[in-house]
Amino acid sequence: MTAITTPVPAVDPRSKREVARQTARNEKDAQKRLSSRGATLVAILIAILWTIPTFGLFVTSFRPGADSNTTGWWTVFVNPGFTLNNYFEALNSGGTALSLGQSFINSLAITIPATLIPIAVASLIAYAFAWIEFKGKNMLFIFVFALQIVPLQMALVPLLSLFSRGLTINGVGIFPGFALRDVDHSFATVWIAHSIFALPLAIFLLHNFISEIPGDVIEAARVDGAGHGQIFFRIILPLATPAIASFAIFQFLWVWNDLLVATIFAPTSSLPITQTLNSLSGTWGNQWYLQSAGTFIAIVVPLIVFFALQRFFVRGLLAGATKG
């Protein structure tokens, strides 16, 4: 009888250790290579290259207009000439009905409510979609989600028509329309428009976050006698703060940088900074150097918002990305 010899898997402790050591070495190697002097240098180089255009704009904003028109900004190192005139001129001459300073205030008046309104509405809707059972919930959610696909340009004319002419169906007046055209500083139309355009994404993002909150927490609250109101304000809102904050950053930046929606919906006295900035260079583009100064005035607020809420920013990019 011959014994059947099964090949014993050769677990040689020495080679095992060897593999482990090799892996560790590889990892360290990769880490070292990525954080080596060369890699850091490349990273810094890319960062510098990336910043050069912005830096050029920054330099231009301090150069006298005649200099900017004749020579490139880099010649400033050989032939320095600086002035704050561009900033004064940009702030006080708008090239349209408003100066840049006035429209800066308008931008704040547009952006803050246009960020808060969609958050208030969307968090309530997201809660309803996540934690209240009703018929056709999924269909409705898909419908809201699908609305993101509709380009907002398509809604401009109908919405504007609704605002200015109102809505009448079969002779029955349903909504009279706003008579806002000659009213100074009316922002209602812009707020509503921005809120409407923001809602689909806001609902989607917040829903994904809110539906991730463990059901046990909500069950427990319900057992303790909490209604929907209490659950929403005491549990959902505090827990969803990171998602809300990250959406707030996106919405704030988007509204602050928006030109189209405001140009179409805002009355003359309520135009935002983007519109003034656009007009600053003049009909024939002969004052383009003022735009460089105007840009840096306009950039201040987004920078403050970004740095204040920075820690939510990356989290916001991942919001809804991890579905457990």
Binding site: S93, G95, T96, R181, D182, T268, N278, S279, L280, S281, G282, T283, W284, N286, Q287
Partner: peptide
């Protein structure tokens, strides 16, 4: 209210 494409110094 007058609107147009003229901006900058020409608008002033």
């Amino acid at each position: 209210q007058i609107a147009g494409g003229i901006t900058g110094g020409e608008a002033d």
